[in-house]
Amino acid sequence: MAIKSLVTHVEIDIAGKAHNFQASAKHRIEKGDVRLKVRNSRSWDHYCLNCAKKIIERDIKKLKAIQDRLTAVSQP
């Protein structure tokens, strides 16, 4: 049986052209900026580095909380 993952397909790349940030038009990703790409069905969502770091930190906390809960219920 293959091991599944809760983490979707994610890449770090360089923007080929300038565009607005995925979640807010107030953020702009310029051509040449490093960005986080997250697979969203058949397309990609793009995030600037500052927001990507916040998203990752938040998700690590969520995964840690899930791990703690699983550990608590599996102990006698």
Rank of each mutant, 00 (worst) to 15 (best):
1 M>P: 04
1 M>C: 05
2 A>M: 01
2 A>H: 10
2 A>Q: 03
2 A>V: 06
3 I>F: 11
3 I>M: 15
4 K>N: 09
4 K>V: 09
4 K>E: 05
4 K>C: 02
5 S>W: 00
5 S>T: 10
5 S>F: 07
5 S>Y: 08
6 L>R: 10
6 L>I: 12
6 L>E: 10
8 T>E: 02
9 H>I: 13
10 V>D: 10
10 V>F: 12
11 E>L: 05
11 E>C: 09
12 I>P: 07
13 D>Q: 03
13 D>K: 04
13 D>M: 01
14 I>K: 03
14 I>S: 05
15 A>T: 12
15 A>H: 04
15 A>V: 12
15 A>P: 06
17 K>V: 03
19 H>P: 01
19 H>Y: 06
19 H>T: 09
20 N>C: 14
20 N>P: 13
21 F>Q: 06
23 A>W: 02
23 A>L: 06
23 A>R: 02
24 S>F: 10
24 S>Y: 14
24 S>D: 14
26 K>M: 09
26 K>W: 08
27 H>N: 13
27 H>Q: 10
27 H>M: 06
27 H>W: 12
27 H>G: 00
27 H>L: 06
27 H>T: 05
27 H>E: 13
28 R>T: 08
28 R>H: 08
32 G>P: 03
32 G>W: 11
33 D>A: 10
34 V>T: 06
34 V>D: 00
35 R>Y: 13
35 R>T: 01
36 L>N: 01
36 L>G: 08
36 L>H: 08
38 V>E: 06
38 V>S: 00
39 R>Y: 03
39 R>P: 04
39 R>K: 15
40 N>R: 15
40 N>I: 14
41 S>W: 05
42 R>N: 11
42 R>F: 12
42 R>Q: 14
43 S>Q: 15
43 S>I: 08
45 D>N: 11
45 D>P: 03
45 D>Y: 12
45 D>L: 12
46 H>F: 15
46 H>L: 13
46 H>N: 15
47 Y>R: 06
47 Y>N: 03
47 Y>K: 05
47 Y>W: 15
47 Y>Q: 04
47 Y>C: 07
48 C>W: 00
48 C>I: 03
48 C>R: 11
48 C>L: 00
48 C>A: 05
49 L>S: 13
51 C>V: 05
51 C>W: 08
51 C>S: 04
51 C>Q: 06
51 C>L: 11
51 C>K: 02
52 A>Q: 07
53 K>V: 10
53 K>Q: 03
55 I>E: 13
55 I>C: 11
56 I>W: 10
57 E>G: 04
57 E>A: 15
58 R>G: 13
58 R>K: 14
59 D>S: 13
60 I>N: 11
60 I>Y: 07
63 L>I: 05
63 L>A: 01
64 K>E: 15
65 A>K: 11
65 A>S: 01
66 I>S: 04
66 I>F: 05
66 I>G: 01
66 I>E: 07
66 I>Y: 10
68 D>N: 00
68 D>F: 00
68 D>P: 00
69 R>E: 02
69 R>D: 04
70 L>E: 13
73 V>E: 07
73 V>F: 01
74 S>F: 01
74 S>R: 09
74 S>V: 02
74 S>D: 10
75 Q>I: 07
75 Q>Y: 09
76 P>V: 06
76 P>H: 09
